[in-house]
Amino acid sequence: MNWVLTEESLGKLLDCFDADHNLAGEKYEDLRRALSRFFEGRGIFFHEECTDEVFDRVARRLVEGVEIRNIYSYCYEVARLVLLERIKSSEYRNVSIEAHNSDLSATDIGDELAEMERRLRCLDACLQQLPPESRLLITEYYQDDRRNRITRRQSMADRLGIRRDALANRAQRLRSKLEQCIVRCLKKDAV
């Protein structure tokens, strides 16, 4: 039986992150990204699906009245369980191979340049959607300067008057937003 996330259960889930639901939303998104990377790092192809599964199960427990003291640790334990179940499932191995093959067939030598051009077109369109200060930040943060990376980013943080990790967060969110925008654009372009 499939259990569906309701408004009530989502509200309870967000409460675990923060009483302020705007802040909670951000924290939820951050944990979502972390869980997704966890599944991805374990070789799960449909990592977003597994991440949904984790949140669904946690929300369900909350509705059932379970008290969760640390939402992060709890989600980690549930994620481990989902991972083990996924690895044990018979479809896991088949899906892995199929995913590889479908990925293979998707790329063709002749199309590579055209693909790159499409990506660049989408990137330009997505960059245009960012405010100038965000474009400046992401460009400066990820510029090609491996040797001075640490000191450069620290001085950026000092200049902006924020902590180093807060700057990293800001740059990552922008990059992630840009990546999502490009993926959406490519999908739209392919239709």
Binding site: A34, N70, C75, A168, Q172
Partner: peptide, 17 residues
């Protein structure tokens, strides 16, 4: 990195770099 958002930010930073 799942339990600590700061460590996750560090992980993503290293990955992007």
């Amino acid at each position: 990195f799942i339990s600590n958002p700061q460590i996750f930010a560090q992980v993503v930073d290293v990955e992007n770099d």
